[in-house]
């Protein structure tokens, strides 16, 4: 191992931890979850109401998620890898659960307006 390897390790780890801290300290609770299938938003649900909902896609693809105590969790899906089911539940603004095979995205929305976003707008 060379000295440059060590520098590389430190730089990447510091970047990673810095970004994680930034995300953690700037997160805000959301109020809704938006459901997007194949880049089209099909529905949104308020987080303060507990429900179980199944998203039906093309060719029999489906994803079932639940809203419970303000948290959204994917509980089952038709995709082969089920990575979306193993992703942790979401509650804070712009957190996502993604099912890539079915192209389903659950995203928390409707938190306070992010200052960066309002500048961009």
């Amino acid at each position: 191992m060379k000295r440059n390897d060590l520098i590389l390790i430190i730089v990447i780890v510091v970047l990673g931890i810095g970004a994680l801290l930034f995300i953690n300290f700037t997160k805000e609770s959301g109020s809704k979850v938006g459901v997007t299938v194949k880049q089209e938003e099909i529905a949104s649900f308020a987080l303060d109401e507990d429900i179980v909902y199944t998203i039906e896609g093309e060719n029999g693809a489906w994803n079932t998620f639940e809203i419970k105590d303000g948290y959204v969790n994917m509980i089952d899906a038709s995709c082969p890898d089920k990575l979306c089911v193993s992703q942790s539940k979401i509650h804070y603004d712009h957190e996502t659960i993604v099912c890539l095979p079915n192209q389903v995205v659950l995203e928390i929305i409707g938190g306070e307006v992010n200052p960066i976003d309002s500048i961009a707008n």
């Binding site: 390790i9 990447i12 990673g16 931890i17 970004a19 994680l20 712009h94 996502t96 993604v98 890539l100």
Partner: peptide, 18 residues
């Protein structure tokens, strides 16, 4: 999926990638 917020998965992937 045209959602840039997926990038929030990257920091942890950077660390585990190292």
């Amino acid at each position: 999926v045209s959602n840039v917020y997926i990038i929030t998965y990257l920091p942890l992937l950077l660390i585990t990638g190292v």
